[in-house]
């Protein structure tokens, strides 16, 4: 039985017919075909599906779609600027060599962006905490942390 929800998706008011059994990730990837948000495990254990809801980074694979009602959701597709140029955090990931296979990267960017949106100059400890739920197998995390630091002005 479908229900209607209204929410903000990447700054646009969105009204959707949804099935309460969907997760937010299902809505994004399967229904809206916004495939930038990745499913790495489906159980909230890898962070690849991270999106920002009302300022907090959360796992969209565990997020009941009905819970989105009235909230503001930002996905990786909403991070770049309107003219298509990269957000500073995205540019930093590019410039610092933080990207390899890239599958974890949208989640990494959402987690770190949620931090940077709240704190201009987070400490290295806070940077690591922000991505400690985001698994990456390629990079050893070094350049990912470097990239976030470079935006945070903490270098």
């Amino acid at each position: 039985m479908k229900k209607e929800i209204t929410f903000t998706l990447n700054k646009e008011k969105t009204i959707m017919e949804v099935d309460p059994q969907w997760t937010l990730l299902h809505l994004l990837r399967e229904v809206l075909e916004m495939t930038g948000t990745k499913e790495g495990c489906g159980y909230g254990e890898c962070g690849a599906c991270t999106v920002i809801i009302d300022g907090e980074a959360v796992n969209s694979c565990l997020y009941p779609v009905m819970e989105v009602e009235g909230r503001s959701v930002m996905t990786i597709e909403g991070v770049a600027l309107k003219d298509g140029s990269l957000d500073p955090i995205q540019q930093a990931f590019v410039d610092e060599g933080a990207v390899q296979c890239g599958f974890c990267i949208p989640g990494m960017i959402m987690s770190s962006k949620a931090l940077l949106d709240k704190k201009d100059k987070p400490t290295e400890e806070e940077i690591k905490e922000s991505i400690e739920g985001n698994l990456c197998r390629c990079t050893g995390y070094v350049k990912i942390v470097d990239a976030i630091k470079s935006v945070a002005g903490g270098r």
Binding site: T37, E77, L86, F93, V94, V99, I105
Partner: peptide, 9 residues
């Protein structure tokens, strides 16, 4: 390919 991967494209 980093820009493509950082934007989810």
């Amino acid at each position: 390919d980093a820009p493509l991967k950082t934007t989810g494209a």
